[in-house]
Design a binder for these strands. Sequence first.
DNA 1: ACTACGATGAACT
DNA 2: GTTCATCGTAGTA
Length: 157
Amino acid sequence: MLPRSFYARDTVKVARELLGKELVCGSKRGIITETEAYKEDDPASHSCRGRTPRNAVMYGPAGHAYVYFCYGMHWMLNVTTEREGTAGAVLIRSLDWVSGPGRVTKELGIDKGLNNHDMTKAPLYIREGIAPKKVETTARIGINRGVERQWRFYTQL
DNA sequence: ACTACGATGAACT
DNA sequence: GTTCATCGTAGTA
């Protein structure tokens, strides 16, 4: 299981290094193949307009789950990063057997009940997996601002 | 209280 | 490439 110190670093670095790690949620698991980084002063991040009740988790300690609802039907799973007091999160977009952030949460049974869950504890956590062969870097998906930041990472196993 | 819209996915054309 | 299902959040008042 990855220690909190893994998450308490630069968000972009954490997003890049989460590729190939294994996400575990109860009896379900999968290798992370796609992530996106969202930092505090990031026009595409929920934290861009300061702290609100929804995004408060991003400002808390690293290594917690930030789960939020979007488009009236999808839950998104993020892992908080950076030091406490600084907003940052990595969106888990795909595993090796399910692609799309909305589908990841649906297949793993993740919803707001796991918001602010400590990712260094069962049932939801991340542990060492495999070394990704090649990592591609692109612009993030589904956003209108901050498009120039190449903070989406994905790999093929 | 009202309203616009979003870190999406599925089903179209 | 386009449409739409569907609702919490945040901004406005």
